[in-house]
Write a protein that binds this DNA or RNA. Structure first.
Length: 816
DNA sequence: GTTAAGTCCATACC
DNA sequence: ACAGGTATGGACTTAAC
């Protein structure tokens, strides 16, 4: 039999002491298909150079006799082969060791202690990863599968309990051209009486799919057609499982569902002594604990969308938190519905409809976000080669490593191992290396500015200078000379697999970006973006202590060559009688002086002609005006703080309090307004009037409390803080009030007036929560929020705003 | 007891 | 444990007088 097939969820099982891959996917008609396949697991023994043939023969014979027994099973070496391979770019002889059960790879590797065996590698890859590499059945690609239909009795009861339309034992896999795939997505969200997992009852569960909207509940009934009422919690949970099975999604998605919804459901089911058999084999969700809890459902890809957004997207979002509300608002232009969380016993009769509505909306937003982000997720999955489940939770650095692992075969490379605990410890203790160059700006308001920046600078440095573990060398001929601290380090010019792979990613990114420019459509946009995300992870990866291909020399040299290049660009621009005013890492801002725009573009061209390798400088934009200010302490210009206005009057603000979420809205808005007025007008007149008015309002207590709330994130548990800061006090107060408080939460508070300023000098002694009675502290908001936010800006115009504010204090309020 | 330097902490830039 | 270094600035803590 032959089918079209797209693999979605990967799993494996043991049958008669061998491993089998069990892959769930769809055929071209949308039927749910299971395929069973296998390969011979193996790992490598890398031999010392010049080991003689006779010795090799003896070693192989020895290895072939290895058997390990543990309680569960007997495992043994099936056979060995001798191969010419590469390890970190070096030619090696290696013995390929085939074994009966992959799970015992590690213990068999431990039995290989001959002194001629230099290294053992490839025993830490994971069965599914190796399967995908061996059989080239890559996730979310279409294949033609030829195979035999399996019946219930094959493989014990593995098959008969599966809720699929067809199960095939694979004979042949052929990749096909087909690309399109629209997964069946089902979003879910629960509402519970307590925040602690399993502590309270689950009040309701919402489900949203295509033409599918449900709220399941048992506390209160409703006439609305999407609400279904059950007699108790257990009944509701049962219905939840039933509806999931009926909808038969490829993806079940929640928002923070790894950490909340799924474990909560599981805990409540346990409490009610019932099974939450969501898996297509009727198994319950399983949870694995890394740093974070991860919930897995067999045959259905459970995705916690928050984790994907955190790992892949957060740095490209404007949202100040990654709450469903803010992220939806930014990406969809749609918010959560209003609802103030309360225990179901306290929900009034007329409020229930709002509660249902709120619950449904959460799933609806999660569904829409998933629809929007799935193309990106799918593209990354295809590039990386690991299953969707893993990719949706992996960091970008992890993705890069997976990409490398899945492409090693092309280079005939044996995989490097994951670092052990002691190795990680060593790496973590290392000293920092020198990073990027940041130009010391001279404070002032500048006119006619241009910005150049390097495209994917660090990635293109890695490629251009061939910086990687496998190209690191002691040779001093035909090399690039980098540095790590005071030490010179060298990299071969002959391209290594890591820079080659990264180069391919950058090249594809460039192609799709061009394609997108020519013909803007969502597909090219997503592709261009996915390749960019992955390319940008390569630098951090090589300096990351957990990396297989960790190479501090490469990471430090990447920064070194980047510094060299940006400084050369700065010199060149200055030499041509432009004036550089600022630069940070990969960008440079300069005044055009007497030059025209065409001349500036010509300069860009010329610089590009002389850049090494694939490095490329780009025009970011032209700006009418820009402002740089002094540091709060000292008379130097502050780095990483500036504001610009381009020719379309679009304003770009970096680093200022306006963009910092730990300043109160009033200060942020005042500063934002000041920057806008100054950049628009080119002078400070209107801005000054504006600030005077704000000062007046503060003094007259005309400001609402919500405008003076300060938000600070709790980064660790309350007792772990060495310094007791205002936000720690606020967190304590929240806890004392019996409200939930946890690591990661944004704590809101304001600084209030106190009876005796003499007794209570510290800021933390004046902290009040938003709902506490009290008035905002006029002096604090003037001297610690508003004035500091605008002081340095006015200083550019030689205006001392503090004096003006002080002076105005003595005047009658009415004089403003 | 006051003040300045040092440390902790959060958050931004790239 | 789950990318890197550079930088600002508030508030607390501690050392020095």
């Amino acid at each position: 039999m032959q089918i079209q097939f797209i693999p979605i969820d990967y799993d494996y099982f043991d049958w008669q002491e061998k491993n089998y891959a069990k892959i769930i996917g769809r055929d071209d008609k949308g039927k749910r298909i299971c395929i069973i396949d296998s390969f011979e697991p193996y790992f490598w023994a890398v031999l010392k150079p010049k080991t003689c043939d006779l010795k090799i023969k003896q070693i192989r014979e020895k290895i072939e006799k290895i058997e390990v027994n543990d309680k569960l099973r007997k495992s043994r070496v099936i056979r060995t082969e001798l191969h010419d391979k590469k390890f970190l770019g070096q030619d090696v002889n290696a013995i390929k060791i085939f074994i009966t059960n992959y799970k015992d790879a590690h213990s068999i590797a431990d039995e290989i202690g001959m002194k001629e065996v230099n290294k053992r590698r490839g025993y830490d890859l994971g069965y599914i990863t190796q399967y995908i590499i061996e059989k080239k059945l890559k996730p979310l690609n279409w294949y033609k599968i030829e195979g035999e239909v399996l019946t219930d009795n094959d493989f014990g009861n593995i098959i008969n309990s599966l809720d699929v339309d067809l199960c095939l034992k694979v004979n042949k896999i052929t990749e096909t051209e087909k690309q399109e795939f629209k997964p069946k997505i089902l979003a879910y969200d629960i509402e519970a009486d307590e925040f602690e997992i399993g502590k309270g009852e689950i009040v309701m569960i919402s489900l949203v799919g295509e033409n599918f909207r449900k709220v399941l509940t048992w506390k209160h009934c409703s006439d609305q057609n999407f609400v279904e009422c059950f007699k108790d919690e257990a009944d509701m949970l049962e219905a939840f499982v039933k509806y999931v099975k009926q909808y038969s999604p490829d993806i079940l998605v929640g928002y923070f569902s790894d950490g909340f919804d799924l474990p909560y459901l599981r805990a409540r089911a346990e409490k009610k002594s019932m099974k939450l058999n969501l898996g297509i084999d009727n198994s319950q969700p399983s949870f694995s604990r890394g740093r974070l809890l991860t919930g897995k459902i067999k045959g259905i890809v459970h995705i916690d969308l928050l984790r994907f957004i955190q790992n892949a997207y957060s740095q490209y979002l404007q949202s100040e938190t990654l709450s469903l509300n803010e992220v939806s608002n930014e990406l969809l232009g749609e918010k959560k519905h209003e609802w103030e969380h309360k225990h179901s016993a306290k929900v009034k009769k007329h409020e229930w409809e709002d509660y249902f509505d709120y619950n449904l909306q959460d799933s609806a937003l999660t569904y829409k976000l998933t629809e929007k982000l799935f193309p990106d997720l799918m593209e990354i999955t295809k590039i990386v080669g690991e299953p969707l489940f893993n990719v949706s939770r992996s960091t970008m650095a992890g993705d890069f490593e997976d990409l490398v692992i899945h492409n090693l075969e092309r280079f005939n490379e044996i995989p490097e191992k994951r670092p052990m605990r002691d190795e990680i410890g060593k790496r973590m203790q290392r000293e920092k290396y020198e990073g990027a160059f940041v130009f010391q700006p001279v404070p002032g308001l500048y006119e006619n500015i241009s910005f150049f920046d390097f495209t994917s600078m660090y990635a293109s440095v890695i490629v251009s200078y061939n910086l990687s573990l496998s190209t690191l060398t002691k040779d001093k001929k035909n090399v690039y000379q980098g540095e790590l601290g005071n030490k010179k380090v060298y990299f071969l010019k002959k391209p290594g697999f890591f820079p080659i792979l990264l180069g391919e990613i950058i090249e594809k990114r460039k192609q799709y970006k061009e394609e997108y420019k020519k013909n803007p459509n969502p597909i090219t946009k997503v592709r261009s973006n996915a390749y960019k995300l992955i390319a940008n992870a390569a630098y951090g990866y090589q300096g990351f202590f957990g990396a297989r291909y960790y190479c501090l020399e490469a990471a430090a040299s990447t920064a070194y060559f980047a510094r060299q290049n940006i400084k050369q660009v700065i010199d060149k621009i200055n030499k041509e009688e432009y004036q550089v005013v600022y630069s940070d890492t990969d960008s440079v801002a300069f005044k055009l002086n007497a030059h025209t725009k065409p001349q500036t573009l010509e300069l860009l061209k010329e610089i590009n002609k002389n850049l090494p390798g694939i490095m490329e400088l780009d025009l970011e934009d032209f700006y009418k005006r820009g402002i740089w200010v002094t540091k709060r302490t000292g008379e130097f210009g502050a780095k990483k703080k500036y504001a610009l206005i381009n020719e379309e009057n679009k304003i770009k603000i970096r680093g200022f309090e306006t963009v910092r979420r730990d300043w109160c809205n009033l200060a942020r808005e005042t500063q934002n307004k000041v920057l806008h007025l100054i950049l628009n007008d080119g002078n400070e007149q209107k801005a000054l009037e504006y600030v005077k008015n704000v000062i007046r309002k503060i003094k007259n207590r005309e400001i609402e409390i919500k405008e003076v709330l300060i938000r600070t994130q709790l980064k660790k548990s309350i007792d772990e803080y060495k310094a007791i800061t205002p936000h720690v006090i606020a967190a304590r107060k929240i806890k004392e009030a019996g409200k939930p408080i946890d690591i990661g939460m944004l704590v809101e508070y304001f600084i209030a007036e106190v009876r005796s300023e003499k007794e209570k000098k510290l800021v933390r002694e004046k902290v009040k929560l938003p709902d506490e009675k009290g008035e905002y502290n006029i002096n604090y908001y003037l001297n610690n929020q508003i004035l500091p936010a605008v002081e340095n800006i006015f200083e550019v115009f030689n205006i001392n705003i503090k004096e003006i504010a002080d002076g105005s204090k003595q005047k009658k309020l009415g004089e403003f």
